[in-house]
Structure formats: structure tokens, C-alpha cells
Simulated assay, not measured.
Amino acid sequence: MIFEEEKREEKNERLLVDLCECYLLLGNQFNSELIPICMSCLFKVALNKQEDEETQKEVEMALLALRRIYTFQKMEKELYFNEINEIIQHHQEHHNLTQLAYQSAWGFLIYRLRADNSLEEVIVNELHFGREAARELEELSNCVDWKRKEEVNGRIEVMIIRRWLNEVYDFFDSSILWNEEFAGLIGSIVQVFRASRDNHKGIRYGCLYSLEYAAEKRNMEIDAFVKEGAVDLFLEEMKQSTLKDNIIRYFLNILLNFSRQMKAKKNNEMEEAKRKELKRKLFEMNEEEGYEDTITCFHGIFSFLFKNGCNVLSLDVSDYLVNV
């Protein structure tokens, strides 16, 4: 039906939009010849900058559908690049999109990064993904009464937070770039974790997945995790973890990545001095918080952790300790 409508001399644009949205929202596998038609049709809707409620809903639905385009094949940038840039930049200046629409626009772009690393510079330094994701997570989190379980489960903001955490995870999984704005994003994720840990397991794990992949980045600044309270959070949670809570494996894996980076030699004297100062700071935190005792306690249950899917942890306790 989409092919037929597209070939008509006098297209029914509304019908074509509805067909494209249904096709993308309900499908799992997409015809490569249909994708350009759907993208062209839905971007026309998504680029509408009017701010009345009806237009906002139409734009939101179009962007939701576009976010559903899952493909690992590299797309021609001519199909989407200028359009998605304009949508995101215009919202940053005028705030014309709904929260769900804005998240969906970012989700579409982040997914393209999987097949096209040339998008990294634009996403990080021109569109400021770290800054935008941090702000959105904070604003959405502030709308939720996290102490009331029924409130948490019934809020659309919670669903959008999960979607943002998925985008953050995908970004860290696909990109190696890092700038100072990502320190703020680490802090926002820590805040969401603390707020949600009692009443929303899915959000809690979404935060952990994102932090774990951030810790694996080659250009990641460990200092950001210290300043933004992530290391404090890890130590707190590890003390409370039990055999029944395999959340411990995420913290151990993150701290193991820190230890590996601390052992690496830097390229110049300034970097080496910074590395030694950070090692000293972490060592002091370890002593104050009883970190070494905590790790030692868990050493006897590594076999349990392996059975629960953590097959990369070291059996040597000293690998998790950062010594000056």
C-alpha cells in the first residue's frame, strides 16, 4: 500500500503518513526499499515547527516511528542527517518538542552511530549529547515521586527515563569520544540510581549498564566518576549487596576497569602526575570506606558470580585494589 500510494501522481499525504507510521511501529524487519520512502514522509511531519498541541502530537508520533528503524547497515546521510540535526538544534533553541519526541529524535541519531562513526563529533561536540541527556534525566526524574511505587510505575516520565538510559548505553557502546559534559551525565545517572533504587529495579539496572559501559571507554575520565559521586555509590552498594543480589558484579567490573586504567602509563609528565594523584585519592577512599574488606568478603563467592553471567571478573582480589 505504501508503494502504491507513493507512485500516485496525487498522493494522499495523510494516508501515506499513517501507513508509514503503522509499518514502522508494528514491524520488526523492514524492507530496504521502503525505508527511504518512510523516512522522507515522516521527516516532513517531524520538521513542522508549529507548537500547537495537535502538531506536537503529530511530530511526536512521526519521531517515535522513525526511532523504530533498526538497521546495522550504513545509511546515506542524505536520507536523514540535515533533517535530524535541524530537529534537535531547533528544539535546543525553542523547546518545541514533547519530552518523548525529543528523546526519540536522539534515539534515531544514536542508533545511526552504530554503523557510522563519523557521527561521533557532531553528536558529542556540536549537538552536545552529554549535556542534553543529563538535563533531560534530571528534569524527568524531578517529575516523579520515587517513594511511591504506584506513582513510579504509572508515570510516562519513567518510561522516557528508561529510553534515555538506553540511548546513553548505546552511545557508550558505540563511541569512544568523551568531553567534560559527560561528567555531568555521570552525575545525573547517579542521582537517578539513588532515587529509583527502592522502587524501580529496571531503572536501577539501566543506570548500571550505562555506568559500566562508560567505565570501559578508552577516553573516559575516572576523575569524573569520583567528583560526581559514582565511586561513593559503588562502595555504598557493595557493602549492602548479598549473595542474592548479583548487582555486585557490575560494581566489580567497573572498579576493575578503573584499576586497569590506573596501572597504565601516561604519555607525559603532567598526565603521569594526574594519574598518581587520582590513585592516591582512590586509595584514601578505599581505606576510609573499608573497600578492601568488602572485596575480600566477596572473594569467596566468585564462582556464584560467574554462574550469574559475569565471566570476565578476575579471581585476584589485588586486581580490584588501587595502590599508590
Rank of each mutant, 00 (worst) to 15 (best):
R260S: 05
E284P: 15
S241A: 15
N257D: 07
K279Y: 02
K274S: 05
R280A: 08
Q240E: 15
E272K: 09
K265R: 14
L256I: 05
M270F: 03
A264T: 10
L252Q: 11
E287I: 15
L255I: 07
Q240T: 15
L255C: 07
F251T: 08
L256D: 09
N268H: 02
I248S: 01
E287W: 06
L252M: 11
R260I: 12
I247E: 02
K265M: 03
N257C: 12
L252Y: 05
F258K: 09
M285W: 00
N257S: 13
A264L: 08
S259G: 10
I247W: 00
N267L: 06
K265Y: 01
Q240V: 13
E272L: 08
K279E: 03
K266H: 04
R280S: 08
D245I: 14
L278F: 04
K276M: 08
N286D: 09
E277S: 13
F251W: 15
E271V: 07
E272C: 04
N286I: 07
N246L: 09
N253V: 05
M270N: 10
R280N: 12
M270L: 15
M238R: 10
A264Q: 15
N267P: 12
I248C: 00
E269C: 02
S259K: 07
M238W: 02
M285A: 01
E272Q: 11
M262R: 13
L252E: 10
K279C: 06
F258W: 09
N253C: 06
I254N: 02
E272H: 05
L282F: 04
A264I: 02
E287V: 13
S241F: 14
L255S: 05
Q261C: 08
M262P: 13
I248M: 05
K266E: 04
E271A: 09
M238F: 00
K239D: 03
K263A: 03
K276L: 10
Q240H: 12
N267A: 03
L243N: 12
K266G: 01
R260V: 13
F283E: 14
K266L: 03
K239H: 11
N268A: 00
F251N: 08
N253K: 13
A264G: 04
Y250S: 06
N253Y: 05
I247T: 10
K274P: 01
A273K: 13
R249D: 00
R280F: 06
K281P: 15
E287T: 09
E271S: 07
Q261F: 01
E277N: 14
K266W: 02
R260M: 10
K279M: 07
K244Q: 11
Y250V: 06
N268K: 06
Q261P: 00
M262V: 10
R249I: 04
R249S: 01
N286K: 06
L256C: 12
I248W: 02
M285P: 15
L256S: 12
A273T: 14
A273C: 08
L252P: 15
F251I: 02
A273D: 07
K263C: 03
M238C: 04
R280W: 14
L255P: 04
L255D: 02
E271W: 05
